[in-house]
Structure formats: C-alpha cells, structure tokens
Simulated assay, not measured.
Amino acid sequence: MQHGITSEDIYNFDETGFAMGLVATAKVVTRAEMTGKPFLVQPGNREWATSIECINSTGWALPPCIIFKGTVHIKGWYQDKALPKDWRIEVSDNGWTTDQIGTRWLQNTFIPATNGHMTGKYRLLILDGHGSHLTPQVDEMYIQHDIIPICMPAHSSHLLQPLDVGCFAPLKWAYGCLVENKARQNFNHIDKLDFLEAYPQARSEVFKPETIKNSFAASGLVPFDPERVLEKLNIQLKTPTPPGSRSTDSAPKTPHNLRKSRHLQSKSF
C-alpha cells in the first residue's frame, strides 16, 4: 500500500449507542370499543450510553470508551469486577460524544494502545465525517503521530465501515438478549451499573478475531476488493442506443403511386 501501510496498521473506529432506563419498550393503552391500532405510550426515565469502539484489520479490538450522561464520575463504576481495568469511562451532558472526549480518546486510548503494534511509520484510521473526529486539535495529533485519517463519504458507513458492516448489529443483539434475561428475572430498569455488568459480556461474544476480520473483508478493505461493495449497489449499466442516421436517403422507401415510382427509378440511374 501507499506510505508503506500494511494490514497491521489499518484501524476503524466509530461510536454506537444504547438506551438505558425502563426495560419495557412501550405501554399499550386500549379500550373495549377500540377497532384500530392500539395507542402506544412510551415510558420516560430514559438515558443514553455511548461506546467508542476501534478495531484492527488483523482481528483485535482496542479497549472501548464508555460515555454516560452526567457531570461527575461515580466511584462505584470502577469497583465493578465485571469492568476490565483498561476500559475508559467519560461523562457528557447527554451521554453522547463531544469534541473534547474525541480528543482524549485519541490521546489516551488509541495512540498508547496502537504504538506497540505498528509495523510501519503510519497508521491508517478509517472513520466517518463526525465533527468530533476532525477538530483542529485532533488534526494536529494526526500529524504529530503519523496517523492518516480516511473519512468515508456521507451515508456510506453501512457499506464501507467494518464496525457497521459486521460488528455493531450483533453487538446490539447480544446486549438486547442480556437485557431480556434480566426482564425475565423481574428486573424492570437498567441503570449504569447494570450496563457495565452486561456490556462486557455482550462485547466479548462479538469482538472475536474472525468476526473482525470478516468485517474488514465484507467492506472490501482488507483484503482490498472493491467488488465486495459494488456488488451490493443496485446499479444497472445501460448500453446507449446509437443515434439514427441523419440522411433521409439512406432508408429504402416504398412508392405509394406510379408518379413516385418513376421518380425513384430516375434517381437510381
């Protein structure tokens, strides 16, 4: 590859979100004379947790960064035995990533975790065009640490981003199964501690070497194979119809009377 980048130096990172709060998705309100679709009332007390994930094309994943809604860190989060020691937790006003969190993730997670795995001078980081990925501070860190960011075109991550192609959907499914199991045990609310207990288990079921490698392959990245993506697009190539001849005398004409017949005969001699 260009810049001497090998598959060992290719990474993809993105965020994915999880809803916490009441386990039930909706309450159904109905009445005896109702004939149409029941009216749904969504329960309140919902919170959002975000996980920043990053994977390498050779089949391993960096420690994630969990973002909770809040203003301070809670000591109990770090006392949970289910939480791996190398995981990072951040807080924001709504549980989403921010420019500052994106910068700290790059500085405190990505760079230290990948320094020992470099086989060449550069690291290739595949990402979407979210604003927190492309701030001036982040751009400066890319330059200082020889990181080459590749931003995917808008609305293409479901085809081009390995995390979206092969990891996030089974991750959501695995986490959902764990939440359903809690519901069967009469748990009706998922809080931050419950999330920190369930998410590591769901993640370990999905972020396996074979799954990660298959995700990069399905994206056409490693090994490089654009046809893996192009064959998923609904594109039909049409052969253009050649334009008709502009000469009025090239096509044979059938005379409709004796006078026209004699006229055509005189032109052929």
Rank of each mutant, 00 (worst) to 15 (best):
G4P: 06
F13C: 09
M20T: 15
L22M: 03
T25S: 15
V29W: 14
T30F: 12
R31N: 15
A32V: 04
G36E: 13
K37I: 04
R46A: 02
A49M: 03
E53N: 12
L62F: 03
C65Y: 03
K69F: 04
K69H: 11
K75I: 00
G76W: 07
Y78G: 07
D80C: 13
L83N: 05
D86F: 07
D86R: 09
D86M: 00
G95L: 01
T97K: 04
D99T: 03
Q100P: 13
I101K: 09
W105T: 03
T114E: 01
N115Y: 12
M118D: 02
G120N: 04
I126D: 08
D128I: 00
H133K: 07
D139A: 12
E140C: 03
Y142D: 03
Q144R: 12
Q144E: 08
I148L: 14
S156E: 00
P162F: 09
P162L: 00
L163Y: 14
L171S: 12
G176L: 00
C177R: 11
C177Y: 05
R184A: 02
D191Y: 12
D191A: 00
L196T: 02
A198H: 14
R203M: 02
V206H: 13
N214V: 00
S215A: 15
G220N: 03
L221Q: 08
F224T: 04
V229D: 10
E231Q: 14
N234M: 00
N234F: 08
T241H: 10
S250M: 07
R259L: 08
S261M: 14
